[in-house]
Amino acid sequence: MRRNAFTTFHPIVNFVYFTFVLVFSMAFMHPLFQAISLAGAIGYSILLNGRKAVKFNLLYMLPLLLVMAAFNPIFNHAGVTILFYLPNGNPFTRESILYGIAAACMYVTVIVWFSCFNKVITSDKLMYLFGKIMPAISLILAMTLRFVPRYRHQLSVISQAQRSIGRDLSQGNLIERARNGLRILSILTTWAMENAIETADSMKARGYGLPKRTSFSIYRFERRDQLTLSIMIGLVAIVLTGAALEENTIRYFPSVVMKEYSLFSFVVYGAYFIFCTLPVMFQIVEEVKWKYIVSKI
């Protein structure tokens, strides 16, 4: 994975950010807000995944957007501005085209944000966040993540051993193969149970089961996490105020209605822009600083 400034923040900061950005992207259908969020998402996904993200966005997201935008007016006939009538007699309206575009845009934005979420919130961070809520679940997750590769490895060991006595999955006719497969699974199960007893011993030996277990993490909530979190909360507060004053809302049917622009609405737009492009900005700032430091040496 490429190094990215935003991923180095505390998981809570990452998580809060993604929660709000996803909720906002789903809730605000205002075209400007959608554009801002989509730009932020695409920008960040490219920073995170590089060429792969460009490919993903062009190859899958763009067609998805176009298809969804085109399909809405074919099936949705609400709206007052009728452009023409479809062959089956239904009206084709401007509002439904706009709504189609908006809905498709929202959908794509959320998917792209989720692709960023997947990169940033790694299993470690997810486990930490879970652990904050339910420590037991977080331990189970950690143990599962330990056992899955282990079992997979053992499965290949067993399968190789069985192969060397002529009883592998790749040998014999269909029934024999099925039987061999089951046999390998049964060996794995016996093995897993036998060894789980020792693992349980190792847990007991290290005091598992004592009351008041704590959950340790390597993440530290640093001052910059505090600062970033407060900035984020400030921006969110502005955006939410805007939402309460209906700056971010839009009505599509029967006719498109948006609130008139005012000074405050630009404040809200600005706040939302900063919020959506935060990860990208962090990266740019860090890179500029780095270049500056290097150039000084």
Binding site: L139, T199, S202, R206, F216
Partner: peptide, 22 residues
Amino acid sequence: DNGIVTDKVWHELAFGLESLGL
């Protein structure tokens, strides 16, 4: 292999200490 419970080195080091409730 049987002694190790969790998936990450740092977590394994902390496992016993978590149990003790530090």
